[in-house]
Amino acid sequence: MERRDSAMSKTQVHFHPDGQEALVELLFQLADDDFLLAYRGSEWLGLAPHIEEDIAFSSISQDTMGHAAMYYQLLEDLGCGSADELAHARPAAARRNAVLLERVNGPGHYLREPRYDWAFTVVRQYFYTQAKRIRLESLTKRVYTPLAEVAAKIQVELHYHLLHWHTWFVQLTNAPGEARTRMTKAIQDVAADFAGVLTLGAKGADMVRWGLIDDEKVLTERTIAALAPAFAEVGLDWPMPFGMKHGNGRNGEHTPDLDEALATLSEVYRAVPHAVW
């Protein structure tokens, strides 16, 4: 009950009615991206390579979950439903996250035989954080003030996330033997789905027309320019072209990994209908 009441009691901040659809679409992309990646991060809890990393990674996942919560709140303020409902109750087809971010951490389950892949995690986090930073820079300069303000807040934390993942990326890729092999494979794997992070989906042109964000081509160029120095540091060729091997999540195409994630993350939420937790 509380969920609906809180949705009604908030002041609704409207955008131009004709541009609202594009705004809502963009907010779902931003919210779902962070929500799913934070969820995958939370599965790592207690399983990271060492205790210090467990603590740092958990802190990053909390920040990321907090970012998702802020975006869902903006959607709630626009009258799209309560933030919790948007996070927990939307079916896979309604999700707008990039497929790369829903993909499992590796074989196994977070409670049974988690044979998680740290190389894949490091590369996914590093690539995504760079793309996220470029996107946020664009958002802070744009017309919808509530979003520009949220983006400015998130930017502050992102600096540290980027530093963290860049360190792991370079250290492991430059380490001899098995580490470099695993990292090279993970880079190929992440690149195969990375175009799905960079695209703004079918409504991207509308988002640009309404002044919400820069064009995806511009954002892509900036992201590549931001990643390039790290590739020089590790002496590897650029993994182009980026692909959407497992589908375009922005258009509602998803993998069974997302179904499994949604079932787990909403298990308690759905257990007792209309309950307050």
Partner: peptide
Amino acid sequence: LRRTAYKQNAWVREAL
């Protein structure tokens, strides 16, 4: 669970 994670991440410790 901890043993699995320990084994799984052996290559990371080695690299570090």
